[in-house]
């Protein structure tokens, strides 16, 4: 009995962590699809969202929801800046310069925030007013429940947005074939800017939601982003459902392995899982094999 409760508890926190990875991974995937570039500053989007929330909610004392919306608006503006500062000047170059440029952006963002906000991590209130509930010996943290629900909701929203709205379809067309989209009169640059905005907002939401659990700190995004990136590869590079499933899977693998194998090597399991996937199923769970055309 105790064995079962323990593993259910581990499973729950694994899913909670996993949905954080999934949320960040979703932001990754959208940018990969739109620009074919991995954004190494994706984790810092979450960090910025967290700090914006701390500023508006704790610092300026705005009501929770107003502060939340304020943080998301700030992230939207940031998305525009990021697009024009980091991606746009390099849009005609190969993936490597862009990748390195986002890496530079990550260093820049972390240290700028360090300078402005100082090195102390900041606490953040939970969305709900209770700590959690205990079900059959398993404690369910209210914030993890919120994150799980929010992830499902955002995935659903993203799906509707891309499949059911004209703007979403234009975005899809852009991500599939930029030249064709251009011929059809779709403003490609604008579509990519919108993708960055959306991705930055998603990152911001992740930061605000994770803040109460992991606290808001300079490095909060880095390790999450690495795992989220691993999740996108495990799920299938550039695949939305893959990102979600990959994220959840990774969270669960990590927690179970930490419980049953060794705690200090917890961070290694994600990367080990990634290695195994890359060796035996490099296209990921949902990915298809693609070869370059001559």
């Amino acid at each position: 009995m105790q064995f079962i409760t323990e593993n259910l508890q581990i499973l729950f926190t694994g899913l909670g962590l996993g949905s954080i990875y999934a949320l960040v991974a979703l932001g990754f995937v959208l940018i990969i699809r739109a620009t074919n570039v991995v954004n190494f500053a994706q984790g810092d989007f979450a960090m910025l969202g967290g700090y914006a929330m701390v500023l508006f909610f704790t610092g300026l004392g705005w009501p929770y929801w107003i502060a939340f919306i304020g943080a998301l608006l700030a992230m939207a503006v940031f998305g525009v800046l990021f697009n024009y500062g980091v991606y746009y000047p390099l849009r005609h170059r190969s993936f490597l310069p862009v990748l390195i440029s986002t890496l530079g952006a990550s260093i820049f963002l972390q240290n700028t925030v360090l300078y402005v906000a100082g090195p102390q991590p900041k606490p953040l209130d939970k969305l709900l007013n209770f700590d959690g509930i205990t079900l059959g010996g398993v404690f369910l943290d209210s914030q993890y429940i919120v994150i799980l629900v929010a992830t499902v909701a955002l995935v659903f929203f993203t799906f509707l947005f891309f499949e059911k709205t004209l703007l979403g379809k234009k975005l899809q067309a852009t991500s599939q074939d930029k030249d064709m989209a251009r011929l059809l009169g779709i403003p490609v640059a604008l579509m990519i800017a919108i993708t960055f905005i959306y991705s930055a907002v998603l990152g911001g939401i992740a930061g605000v939601l994770v803040g109460p659990i992991l606290f808001v700190s300079i490095g909060m995004g880095s390790i999450i982003a690495l795992k989220a990136f691993a999740a996108t590869i495990i799920g299938g590079f550039g695949d939305v459902k893959g990102a979600i499933v990959g994220g959840l899977l990774l969270g669960v693998i990590e927690s179970l392995a930490a419980q049953h194998i060794s705690v200090p090597y917890k961070d290694a399991y994600a990367f080990l899982a990634l290695f195994l996937f890359l060796l035996f199923r490099p296209q990921g769970i949902f990915g298809e094999k693609v070869s370059e055309k001559a």
Partner: peptide
């Protein structure tokens, strides 16, 4: 033991 900057201490 645990490694610094763990996100989860459930185990």
């Amino acid at each position: 033991g645990y490694t610094n900057n763990s996100q989860d201490f459930t185990p």
